[in-house]
Computed example of a mutant assay.
Amino acid sequence: MLPSDFPPANKRLGQNFLIDHNIVRKIVAAADIGQDSTVLEVGPGRGILTEALSAAAGRVVAVEIDPLLCQMLENRQAKWPNVEFICADALSYPLDQLPVGTIVVANLPYYVSTPLLFRLLDARRRFPRLVLMLQEEVVDRLVAKPGGSEYGVLSVMAQYAADIHKSFRVSAQCFRPRPEVGSAVVRLLVRERSGLTAEAEREFRLLVKAAFAHRRKTLINSLRDEGYLVSRATDVLNRLGFPLNARAETLSVSDFIALTGQFRETN
Rank of each mutant, 00 (worst) to 15 (best):
residue 1 M to W: 10
residue 1 M to P: 14
residue 3 P to D: 14
residue 16 N to F: 07
residue 20 D to Q: 03
residue 20 D to W: 04
residue 24 V to T: 11
residue 27 I to P: 03
residue 27 I to N: 00
residue 37 S to N: 09
residue 43 G to L: 08
residue 44 P to A: 05
residue 45 G to W: 10
residue 47 G to D: 09
residue 47 G to F: 00
residue 56 A to N: 05
residue 56 A to K: 06
residue 61 V to A: 07
residue 62 A to E: 10
residue 65 I to W: 01
residue 75 N to L: 15
residue 77 Q to T: 14
residue 78 A to N: 12
residue 80 W to D: 00
residue 81 P to V: 05
residue 81 P to E: 08
residue 82 N to F: 06
residue 86 I to E: 13
residue 87 C to V: 00
residue 87 C to A: 11
residue 88 A to F: 03
residue 89 D to P: 08
residue 89 D to C: 01
residue 96 D to K: 13
residue 104 V to G: 00
residue 104 V to N: 09
residue 105 V to N: 01
residue 107 N to H: 06
residue 111 Y to G: 03
residue 113 S to D: 08
residue 114 T to E: 06
residue 117 L to C: 09
residue 118 F to V: 01
residue 118 F to L: 10
residue 119 R to D: 06
residue 125 R to M: 13
residue 126 R to L: 12
residue 130 L to Q: 10
residue 135 Q to M: 09
residue 137 E to Q: 09
residue 139 V to I: 06
residue 144 A to W: 02
residue 156 V to F: 02
residue 158 A to P: 06
residue 162 A to F: 00
residue 165 H to K: 15
residue 172 A to L: 00
residue 174 C to P: 08
residue 180 E to Y: 09
residue 182 G to Y: 04
residue 189 L to G: 11
residue 194 S to C: 13
residue 199 E to M: 10
residue 203 E to T: 12
residue 203 E to K: 15
residue 207 L to K: 02
residue 207 L to A: 02
residue 209 K to G: 00
residue 214 H to L: 11
residue 214 H to V: 07
residue 216 R to S: 01
residue 217 K to H: 11
residue 217 K to Y: 04
residue 220 I to S: 03
residue 220 I to R: 05
residue 221 N to W: 05
residue 224 R to L: 10
residue 225 D to V: 10
residue 225 D to H: 13
residue 229 L to W: 12
residue 232 R to M: 12
residue 235 D to Y: 13
residue 238 N to D: 12
residue 238 N to T: 11
residue 239 R to S: 14
residue 240 L to F: 00
residue 240 L to G: 06
residue 240 L to H: 02
residue 241 G to M: 08
residue 245 N to R: 13
residue 248 A to Q: 08
residue 252 S to V: 03
residue 252 S to N: 07
residue 253 V to S: 09
residue 254 S to A: 15
residue 255 D to R: 00
residue 255 D to C: 06
residue 256 F to S: 08
residue 260 T to E: 02
residue 261 G to V: 03
residue 263 F to M: 04
residue 264 R to V: 13
residue 265 E to L: 13
residue 267 N to G: 15
